[in-house]
Amino acid sequence: MKEITELIRKDFLLELRQRYAINGILLYVFSTIFVVQLCFGRVIDDKTWVALFWIILLFAAFNAVSKSFIQENSSRRLYYYMIASPVSVILSKMVYNAFLMVLLGSLSLLLYTVFMGFPAFDMRLFIPAFLLGSIGIAAALTMVSAIASRSGNNAALMAILGFPVVLPLLLILVKASQTALNGPVDDLKILSMLASVLLIDTVVLILAVILFPYLWRD
C-alpha cells in the first residue's frame, strides 16, 4: 500500500515539475472545443452535444494516458522493476490516470459548457456515469499503453489497440447520457446503466492486475 502511494506521489511530482503535459492536453481540449464551436455555431441539438462531448473526451484521454508508460525509458523501467511489485506499478498508474482523467474531464465539461451550453440532463445519471466512465476509460487505456509501450511504433499502435478496448465503455456512456436527456429517469434504469459501466470497469481492473506482471518482466 505504501509502495502504491509513493509511486502515485512520484507521478504527481513529475507532472507538477514538467507541467507541459497537462497544459498541453488542456490546450488541445480547448482548441478542439473551439473548433467545434466554429464549425457548428453555438446552437446544436442535444444528441450532437452528447456525441461531440464524448468524442472530445475520448481523444483527450488518448493523449493524456498514452504517455504514462511510454515516457518511462528502459533503464528507469528496470529500476522500478527492482524496487516495486508489478501490481503496485499498474495500480498506481491507474489511480494517477483516473485522477488525471476526472480532472481533465471536469475541465473539458466546464469549457464545453461555456462554449456550447449545457443540456438539461438528469444529473443523477449523468454525473455518476461521467465519473465512472472517465475512470474506466483511464484504466483501460493505461493497460493498452502498457502493451503499446513494449512494442516498436507507439503512437499509431496505441490508437489501433486502444480503440476497440474503450469502445464498449464509450457506447454505454453515450447511451447513458442520451437516456439522461429524456427528462427524469427512473431509479432502476439508472442503477442498471451504472452497474454495466461499473461491471466493465471491474473486469478491466481485474484483467489488468492479473496480466500486467507478464508485460512488466523482460
Binding site: 493497460m143 502493451i147 489497440l161 476497440p164 478496448v165 484483467l207 496480466l211 507478464y214 508485460l215
Partner: peptide, 10 residues
C-alpha cells in the same frame, strides 16, 4: 507474451 495478454483482452 505481449500478444497473449492482448488476446485475452480481445
Amino acid at each position: 507474451r505481449i500478444s497473449a495478454v492482448y488476446n485475452i483482452f480481445a
